[in-house]
Design a protein around this nucleic acid. Sequence first.
DNA 1: CGGCTTTTTGAAGTAACTCAAGACCTGTGG
DNA 2: CCACAGGTCTTGAGTTACTTCAAAAAGCCG
Lengths: 254, 254
Amino acid sequence: MIAADTTSAPLVNVTALKSSCAACSMHQLCLPMGLEDADIDRLDQIIGKRRRLERDEPLYKMGSPFRNLYAVRFGHFKTYQINASGEAQITGFQMAGELLGMDAISADRHHCDAVALEDSEVCEIPFGNLQDLFGQVPTLLRHFHRIMSQEITREQNVMLLLGNMRAEQRFAVFLINLSARYAARGYSSTRFQLRMSREDIGNYLGLTIESISRLLSRFKKLGLVQVDKREVVLLEPARLKAMAAGTEQCSPMA
Amino acid sequence: MIAADTTSAPLVNVTALKSSCAACSMHQLCLPMGLEDADIDRLDQIIGKRRRLERDEPLYKMGSPFRNLYAVRFGHFKTYQINASGEAQITGFQMAGELLGMDAISADRHHCDAVALEDSEVCEIPFGNLQDLFGQVPTLLRHFHRIMSQEITREQNVMLLLGNMRAEQRFAVFLINLSARYAARGYSSTRFQLRMSREDIGNYLGLTIESISRLLSRFKKLGLVQVDKREVVLLEPARLKAMAAGTEQCSPMA
DNA sequence: CGGCTTTTTGAAGTAACTCAAGACCTGTGG
DNA sequence: CCACAGGTCTTGAGTTACTTCAAAAAGCCG
């Protein structure tokens, strides 16, 4: 359907795919949030080309030089760090409207790898140009600070999760978090596809793939969720929320 | 020695304690890093009064309205989140030259508690004024972005630690991290005081106080460190670094 | 000193891991 | 279309790293 874009000549590609924030369905969640039309135009002018990625294709690698932030247009990504012994830790899953690459600002090099979980598209946002624009559009600057701050609080929440939650609570938090993010994008909050493997989920939550599988089975048996391959239905979101908050728990095989 | 300041009248206090970044020993690590003298002066003009805190005194609480960022002048702080079930997770320890409160920008409310670990002093940095200054001093803005980005990467490193390191590696990372930060401040990298309790360390590392105590005993027995109360000497920093990197490990009681 | 908190150490328990095997899916080529 | 190979997921059995519980030792401070 859209294969023509990817096979066309580069020049056409760049031109055809030049972004327009105003026309993008994500603009109320993304960088241009709250901007006036005139300012959105100015943002459009500095935003680079779109970039399409296949499943498993890296958007950037740890250590590569930092030039752009990326806004997810559609699809999903994961970001992960690799330690000295070669093991990975997934630090986040990103979906449409979310910004990638902010960890690279401090050292001018990317601090983690970002990989597409499915066929996806991003807008390249040349950071140098964005910085120039900050001086002219204070609203944009403020919103950018909010986005960075939000990333900080998101990570603090993950630290809380990894530092002192039991497996079932971690998993409930994970499901409820996805649910809320899909809801914010106009999708169902109770029925969605997991775009990542069980292994990715386990890695992100500091658990093994087997634990995730068992957790899913348990939640299924308890009537909390319905699962078919990667399709998930949250049957009892309220109880899941309570579990995520830590006010309710389910015994290990009631 | 400096008690006179705290007991003097408020007005005198504010005046006497008005900050001067140029004169501050931390200015090459803190917000004014890399600024020209003229710009440091402009920063000085917006920076609020200093605030002195006693051990265990809160700097801000979760949910309180966000007005200021804080730069630590001396002393140490911890920041922590409290979940619905009332348990805390320490998200960081801050020392001189480090910035507190960036997690509050996104929601205009503080997202965690910050508490002094010992008698400490901070500079209040009214965020509104700082934002005004960003438009006039681009260097300052860029450095601010670097600081926020650095906080993001720091937290990603903690996620890596909590998500897939064994207890001994976590603890080695913790010690090496403190060592490097003291070194950057001109203090010994091999001999320093732990400003936080064993319980705080355990909480931060996702371990129990008993585990920390056992780890310390083991490291002591292995000749890696010397410990007397809260005074720590790193006897084999190279091996500790290797453990932190994951390239070396010590068996559970060799 | 005496009461308090913090730290250490030991013994027992357990949540989650590892190992292992089989089921299930998915895509490829005959 | 089926067969088969390679990955992903599930389930079970046994192990273990860390926790929990408990008690004593050490430090702190009025």
